[in-house]
Design a protein around this nucleic acid. Structure first.
Length: 603
RNA sequence: GCCCUCAUAGCUCAGUCGGUAGAGCGCGCCCUUGGUAAGGGCGAGGUCAUGGGUCCGAAUCCCAUUGGGGGCUCCA
């Protein structure tokens, strides 16, 4: 750790290189498609993009062509020249570039940035010029195209993107590129992408037989295979243990409810589009539940409560269905059927901070267990504009609850960032961003403070003054959904699960079939001791059996030949390649049971 | 939902200019009884995603649909 303050990306040389590479790319594209309209091209994490309105679709072959031309332009050694000018002058330069004219208008009028967001102050209008290309741009850039290393750039992909990110606007063609200081940096980046691909939960999920999708079942509706079933069982066991210790009660609720319930909760008016359409029977409409909370509210409301009962914590691994739009589905990370590590905590206002921190503590325990080192709480606030539309219309309560959460996190020294306009409709939300072992960001856990629904459901408790009061409700899902959690864990561990999570703890590998019976006896003993085991009695050679177990990432392989059979021993091969030959079976059992029962990260 | 792209055996993939299909793995049988990441042989297995169209003839060309992927938008 250095004491130097970290340089902002926006101020770095890399940022300038990428920004300049975007301009060079735009020049190349315009040379091939002179009629193209160009829009914006900023640096982004790991690279840059530029959005064009092109007269025809371009292909990956075109990318090679464009990339080649970029290298020529770079070699030309052109200077980047900045010039400040008036809106009028800018309009003349970009007279045939409608998107640029729109940008100029935004800059001129009250200052809107390139994404259409308001700017604090009215900016100076400037252009940057190099070779034959001129762009409306605030910079900064490198001084000369030569400062872009032609062997450290690469065009990555073509994608669609809406003008100004608004789905009502025209779909533009976005070209993504990456640029680095040195060819080695580029190589490392590409290697990192390869690694990420090898860890992709969709690939590992298939290879390790965790889940599948079937066309006839439907998109976003995963089928969990036996090995995936084990992961889920273990996660539930973990959650139930932790929640029991933390004073939660377990409840169970149905998958469907009448329309009335979701009208009552306020979900239907806000989220009907994301719900499966209703089914109507005997004149009554039923909806498949998109979340569990309304049902938990009903359970809370089923009897009268005293302040002495609070907090009441209702937990359920509830199965929910949400109609995510087709283009939004993604492996296990975005699905239509999901099972949530859900719970609702009903508490009095003065209990809020303690309960809230109790949830955060739970998070931290899980982070510890899963060796998650980096996390940030994203604290999503309401937006004034959305009141009554996106958000429940009660600004006073919004501000009050937000302040409560803010204080709780400050007091608890929880790292968090605030994001405006992204709350849940019933209250402020905290999404937990975590980073996997290879540094990819995931949003898994979420919790929300709900000041709206308890009131809607007339949930009350009698306070110590004998006056009815409405409790607050904390929605929380530290382990997210099974789908997302397993997706994350697959990538995080690259499929090399700690023993307790491994679908198969041990595989017994007889060397010849003379040891098959001995192997089967071992399996029986292991199963008896709660160790998930099987024997490989196939006609293959031992080496092939080991390879197979290794590919399935089985943590413990027990090789048994004539010697072991005679001595009542096993040869232990651990997934990491280490070996312990000729140990008594009991010794292995003790080791495995210890690792499993403590949920150890060691094998 | 939108833009682009892809779909061949259970899996991973090959298939040229349009002439109705191949490999490896896996599966079954046989031989091999092997000491820490693939022993060998034989065999079964495909309406080339689905539905239309062009053509004497379509896995191959065109259109639509379904599903996957890269993005955008969205994610209570």
């Amino acid at each position: 750790m250095s004491n130097q303050p970290e340089e902002r990306y926006e101020d770095s040389q890399l940022y300038r290189i990428r920004h300049s590479a975007a301009h060079v790319m735009a020049q190349a594209v315009l040379e091939f498609y002179p009629e193209a309209k160009y829009t914006i091209g900023p640096p982004v994490e790991n690279g840059f993009y530029y959005d064009f309105d092109l007269p025809e679709a371009i292909t990956n072959e075109d990318l090679e062509k464009i990339e080649k031309r970029m290298r020529q332009i770079i070699a030309g050694g052109h200077a980047f020249v900045r010039k400040a000018l008036s809106a009028e002058e800018a309009r003349q330069i970009f007279s045939n570039q409608p998107y640029k004219l729109e940008l100029i208008e935004g800059l001129e009028k009250g200052g809107l940035d390139e994404y259409g967001n308001p700017l604090a102050e009215k900016p100076e209008i400037s252009i940057y010029q190099h070779d034959s290309f001129t762009d409306l741009c605030r910079g900064p850039h490198v001084e000369n195209t030569r400062q872009i290393n032609p062997s450290a750039i690469k065009l990555m992909s073509i994608a669609g993107a809406y003008w100004r990110g608004d789905e009502h606007n025209k779909m533009l063609t976005r070209i993504y590129g990456t640029a680095w200081k040195t060819p080695d940096d580029l190589k490392n980046y590409l290697k990192m992408l390869e690694e990420a691909k090898a860890r992709d939960h969709r690939k590992l999920g298939k290879d390790l037989e965790i889940f599948i999708y079937e066309d006839e079942v439907g998109p976003g509706l995963p089928l969990w295979l036996p090995r995936g079933g084990v992961l889920i069982e273990e996660l539930e066991k973990l959650a139930k243990e932790m929640e029991e210790k933390a004073g939660y009660f377990r409840v169970r609720t149905p998958h469907l409810a009448k329309e009335d319930l979701f009208l009552h909760s306020g979900h239907l008016p806000y989220y009907a589009e994301s719900m499966y359409p209703p089914m109507e029977l005997e004149g009554t409409k039923y909806y498949v539940k998109p979340m569990n909370c309304p049902m938990h509210h009903k359970i809370y409301g089923a009897k009268s409560h005293s302040y002495r009962d609070l907090p009441i914590r209702l937990a359920e691994y509830g199965t929910c269905y949400r109609y995510e739009k087709s283009g939004e589905l993604f492996g296990l990370m975005r699905v239509r059927s999901m099972q949530m590590n859900d719970a609702h905590i009903y508490c009095a206002e003065e209990q809020f901070e303690q309960e809230f921190m109790g949830v955060i503590d739970l998070y931290k325990k899980y982070f510890d267990l899963f060796q998650i080192e980096k996390y940030v709480m994203r604290f999503s606030l309401h937006g004034k504009e959305g009141l009554g539309k996106k958000f429940v219309d009660n600004e006073r309560l919004w501000l009050k609850t937000e302040e409560m959460v803010r204080q709780a996190m400050k007091n608890g020294n929880v790292p968090f960032v605030e994001v405006a306009n992204e709350a849940a409709f019933y209250g402020p939300k905290i999404d937990v961003q975590i980073w996997s072992a290879i540094g990819r960001e995931f949003t898994l856990a979420t919790n929300q403070v709900d000041f709206a629904q308890p009131g809607r459901f007339n949930l009350v408790f009698m306070n110590r003054n004998g006056v009815e009061e409405t409790p607050l409700c904390i929605h929380r899902a530290p382990l997210s959904t099974h789908e997302r959690m397993v997706g994350f864990l697959l990538e995080h561990y690259a499929g090399n699960f700690p023993a307790w999570l491994s679908p198969e703890h041990a595989r017994v590998i007889p060397i010849t079939d003379n040891q098959n019976e001995y192997a089967e006896g071992i399996v029986r003993q292991l199963l008896e001791k709660g160790i998930r085991a099987s024997a490989d009695l196939s006609a293959q050679r031992m080496n092939a059996k080991i390879r197979e177990a290794q590919l399935m990432k089985v943590p413990y392989m027990l090789v048994v030949g004539e010697n072991e059979a005679n001595a009542g021993q096993v040869s232990l091969r651990v997934r990491d390649g280490s070996r312990q030959d000729n140990i008594p079976l009991a010794e292995f059992i003790a080791r495995a049971r210890d690792r499993i029962s403590t949920r150890s990260g060691q094998l």
